[in-house]
Write a protein that binds this DNA or RNA. Structure first.
Lengths: 211, 211
DNA sequence: AATAGAAAATGACCGTGGTCAATTTTGGAG
DNA sequence: CTCCAAAATTGACCACGGTCATTTTCTATT
């Protein structure tokens, strides 16, 4: 895989998807911007799970039907907003220097992991949308997951942790363990261990076996 | 971890949860059995995603409120039914001889994986309930995931694939890659690769590095 | 057998996501 | 400027999960 996907804010992503359709009216852009802004405001105040379509359209000053003319369903807007957040984390990671050790690698991933696990609702939605195809066409979260693996490949190329497997396989493994560490984190109120403490042993065993 | 959890059908699981509460009336048992049977019939005919509470109570001959007196919500019944299915697969795996190679290990997991990925809805629900605690108290699917890891530990103890890491870590890795293989499977209508073909390279790299 | 209190069942009702035929607005052709 | 077809918006309406005060049924006590 090569890194073809660059950052997109919610609006830009929408534009890209419709780039080959007929031109959009200015009114359309304004309405969508109001809806997104209203949703972000609600989320800011009460969290992702608490977002209600009724509340969003009320604040945006539109009818409910307008919401669904702009977004396939509630989840589609959530995906847009969460995907944009994920992209800002990826931007920072891509701009930063490649981690030189397993510990540094895990450490670098923590801000992203913290956001993904900030709400159970967020984590579940991300997992649900991380695989495209079932949800017609590829969405922002699936795109972001592609960027993640691309970045891990870059890290693996710059600093070969393992030489017995390809960088792509190595990258997918990092990703799998990152998900595992986050998922496990939710399991235990008891035995409260940080995501980093869960991730490091996985990655050591994956990236530096027999050592 | 030790294997403390044996198979439970939906009814048994419910009983266990309430074992220390006051005795249940015979009527209660019958009603719940009718609800579960009705739900299973609907699922048999139309799949998990198509199950509707209204349809279930209609077939069971109860009022809607009765459904929610027996199950916290629709997902709780789904978890019971899906968890029971998962348990039958685990029973078979536990009864079978330990796989002697990575290929055999992956092969042994295929029936379980096939069920888990039989519907996107099923896979998402399993992931959502695989971590307990957030969903008050541990449910059948989380219990089953514990059984899975316990079994992988047994396999790893019987046939040490890697000696540089503990059997528990080894088992968690197998689990992580199993999830990864299934999740990736949903991503691509294009590039249709079997779950087994996805899982084997992961497990080879995990269980037999440098070879 | 009568009765009281607990357990179970009921169904009208609600919240919220999502639909769609009807209406309004827009941009452009003449 | 007028008019029209396409685009955007509207809000009444529906589907479906979930609630709860009320009613029915069960069980134990006398």
């Amino acid at each position: 895989m090569t890194a073809v996907n660059k950052k997109l804010d919610p609006g830009q992503f929408f534009l890209q998807k419709l780039s080959m359709a007929k031109a959009l009216q200015k009114r359309t852009l304004e309405t969508r911007a109001r809806l997104i802004a209203a949703a972000e405001a609600v989320i800011e105040e009460s969290g992702y799970e608490a977002m209600r379509v009724e509340e969003v359209v009320l604040r945006a000053g539109t009818a409910k039907g307008t919401f669904f003319a702009h977004f396939k369903d509630k989840d589609a807007l959530m995906e847009l907003i969460i995907g944009a957040r994920l992209d800002t984390y990826l931007d920072e990671l891509e701009a930063a220097p490649d981690p030189k050790s397993v510990e540094a690698l895990a450490q670098a991933l923590m801000p992203l992991c913290a956001f993904m696990t900030s709400e159970r609702y967020v984590f579940d939605l991300i997992l649900r949308y991380s695989g495209a195809a079932a949800i017609e066409a590829i969405g922002p979260i699936a795109v972001n997951f592609g960027r993640q693996v691309d970045l891990f490949e870059r890290w693996g190329t710059a600093n070969r942790f393992r030489t017995d497997i390809g960088v792509d396989l190595q990258a997918e493994g990092i990703h799998a363990f990152m998900i595992q560490a986050m998922a496990t984190h939710f399991c235990s109120l008891h035995n409260a261990q940080s995501i980093n403490d869960r991730l490091v042993p996985y990655l050591k065993a994956w990236l530096a076996p027999n050592s």
